[in-house]
């Protein structure tokens, strides 16, 4: 009987430990892998006494499955633009009460009314960037200003493509002069043919995602399709590298804060968003992950080093020729089928 008592006591102690430390509650954050400065999370916990319960994902698709199938599990999620659009259409997102996010006033003008979420009713931008070509200045002939270089024999065997369906199909579509949100099967098939040709002509060295930035630093290829933040990471480690957004246009994307309708800690979620939009905190995060900040006040704090860097702070005309992805859910099977043909072309 005594033993049973000890066991009971131990279990209840354990339970208390699990519940404690939540005096001011928790906020459950679901973010990309390595996509926030740990320092900013600590500062948030210190200031508010709210415990941050932090979870990670690597692709938008993984994240959306979790948000759909685990209602109530998350208070803050960081989806990309077209996924915000998708989640809104599935009626999963809370309409934001901006009176609780005063720091949202720092968000740049061009992101106040984004196409994926008009007037920003459901989302606040966190980071943004472009897709472009990272290249080795010492080994290219002539300027890199068109997607065309990816399809020319000149760089055969020296091109890294992204193993990511929408990004790669998107650039092929734009090179052909189509929209990267096209709903014309014939245009998609022409883009597919272009990518198959590119592969059959042995121009592509590899299709990969995470490995590319380090391999480019090591000089493993001359050209690589990359996201601006990853490009910035490579450039800061190898002076020979440069980044360019092709003249045909490209993809510009925004990762956002959203609050799921099912969130159980909405007040804390608002506090979290407002805290992260505070200029000093936005600066900490931006300098840590090296993507572009949508926060004008934070940009001011970062000064010339940020403002004069065309990779992370492209001029307005570059942004103007870029397009957001839109949700194309009903075309996904077509995309997947066509992409399989590219991946298996020999």
């Amino acid at each position: 009987m005594k033993k049973l008592g000890v066991l009971f006591l131990t279990i209840s102690l354990l339970c208390m430990m699990l519940v404690s430390g939540q005096a001011n509650g928790v906020v459950r954050v679901y973010n990309w892998e390595d996509y926030i400065s740990p320092e900013s999370l600590e500062l948030f916990e210190e200031e508010t006494g709210i415990k941050v319960d932090y979870m990670r994902f690597t692709t938008n698709e993984d994240m959306m499955v979790q948000v759909r199938t685990s209602p109530g599990a998350f208070d803050i999620v960081f989806p990309s633009d077209y996924c915000v659009e998708r989640l809104i259409s599935e009626d999963l997102l809370e309409e934001l009460d901006y009176s609780k996010i005063p720091n949202a006033e720092h968000i740049s003008d061009w992101l106040q009314d984004p196409a994926y979420d008009p007037k920003g009713v459901h989302s606040v931008p966190y980071m943004w960037g472009t897709v472009g070509i990272l290249y080795d200045k010492t080994r290219v002939n002539g300027p890199i200003d068109s997607w065309g270089v990816l399809f020319s024999d000149e760089y055969a065997g020296e091109v890294f493509m992204l193993d990511s369906i929408r990004d790669t199909m998107g650039l092929a579509l734009q090179y052909l002069g189509y929209s990267l949100n096209t709903r014309e099967p014939n245009e998609l098939m022409k883009a597919t043919k272009l990518l198959i040709e590119q592969k059959k002509n042995r121009i592509v060295k590899a299709y990969q995602v995470d490995e590319t930035k380090d391999k480019m630093v090591a000089g493993e290829a001359i050209l690589a399709v990359m996201w601006s933040g990853d490009a910035q990471y490579s450039i800061s480690l190898n002076d020979n590298l440069a980044y360019s957004v092709p003249k045909e246009g490209s993809n510009v994307w925004v990762d956002c804060f959203i609050i799921p309708k099912s969130s159980e800690n909405k007040e804390n979620a608002y506090k979290f968003i407002d805290f992260m939009c505070r200029p000093e905190i936005a600066q900490i995060n931006c300098e840590y992950i090296e993507y572009s900040s949508p926060n004008d006040a934070a940009i001011e704090l970062m000064g010339d080093e940020y403002i004069n860097n065309p990779t992370i702070n492209p001029p307005q005309e570059v942004i103007d020729r870029c397009e957001f992805f839109h949700d194309i859910n009903d075309f996904l099977p077509t995309y997947n089928t066509l992409w399989a043909q590219v991946k298996n072309a020999k």
Binding site: I165, N336, K343
Partner: peptide, 19 residues
Amino acid sequence: GGNTEMFGDLIERTFLTAD
């Protein structure tokens, strides 16, 4: 380098990417 896909990759892609 993702240039050749084997059946295991195909199944993985069908489940995860193509959902």
